[in-house]
């Protein structure tokens, strides 16, 4: 119990004093996961719309696969990306293994199914009559998709924030392909993991609390948006 208490006071201390190392780690976490989330959104929103608005064979099967991949273990994504980008791997020549770049790629792959699936279900929430109304008011295909995305904007935003939440809170992938190098690829989760294994429980708890604090902020934003 005392450890948790000390961890809590330490966390507050670190936050208030704006401890440079902790701030750097938190900033890196935000930057890597934010970039991954942004890039994944840029792919998933149009792709999700495309899947939603087109009828094709195997659409239901595809949706099922996407939903199953919501719960893909982070270590499996980590392993896959590692094999792909390690020095001996097919994309090893790029030399980006153990860099923030590869971490962004890993997290993108990790959250793509979630973003895609939630985008599709957000768009399904918009009634067919809205689509027909837009079409009969003279919207082209793209204009209709844009309108429907706007209609579903809160649900779509919720999907994006969920994706960000999964990205910033995962540890397996970041550890395997980032390598947890101090000052380069160390993020909140991998730092907390390292401190715990070193026995520095207070610092680990402090990092955990900062992570939770970020999650809280995300949740508040999400709630605000949904209540609008």
């Amino acid at each position: 119990m005392t450890e948790i208490w000390h961890g809590l006071t330490k966390a507050i201390e670190l936050i208030i004093s704006l401890d440079p190392e902790v701030m750097q780690i938190a900033g890196r976490s935000l930057r890597i996961s934010g970039t991954a989330c942004l890039l994944a959104s840029l792919i998933c929103l149009p792709l999700g719309s495309l899947i939603h608005f087109h009828q094709f064979r195997g659409k239901r099967a595809l949706t099922n696969i996407i939903q199953t991949l919501f719960s893909v273990p982070t270590v499996i994504v980590g392993l896959f990306v590692f094999v792909l980008f390690s020095r001996a791997g097919p994309l090893g020549v790029l030399g980006i293994i153990f860099t923030p770049t590869v971490m962004v790629i890993g997290q993108m792959i990790l959250i793509t199914p979630l973003l895609l699936g939630l985008t599709i279900s957000a768009l399904s929430g918009v009634s067919k009559e809205i689509v027909d109304t837009a079409t009969s008011l003279g919207a082209s295909g793209f204009q209709t998709i844009w309108l429907v995305l706007r209609e579903a904007r809160y649900a779509v935003l919720a999907a994006v924030i969920m994706g960000f939440g999964r990205a910033i809170s995962e540890v397996g992938c970041a550890l395997m392909i980032g390598g947890n190098f101090k000052g380069v690829t160390r993020v909140l989760t991998t730092a907390a993991y390292l401190e715990t294994s070193k026995g520095e429980l207070e610092l680990a708890i402090a990092l955990g609390i900062i992570l939770l604090f970020l999650a809280l902020i995300i949740n508040i934003v999400l709630n605000r948006l949904q209540q609008r």
């Binding site: 009559e129 027909d132 109304t133 837009a134 009969s136 008011l137 919207a139 309108l147 209609e151």
Partner: peptide
């Protein structure tokens, strides 16, 4: 042409944006 449906489906936007959308699309 323009089609007024039985159940009015307004978009979840301001009244102005609702009325302006068709013109913008053109």
């Amino acid at each position: 042409m323009s089609f007024i449906h039985q159940k009015p489906q307004v978009f979840n936007l301001s009244v102005y944006d609702n009325v302006a959308c068709g013109l913008r699309w053109r």
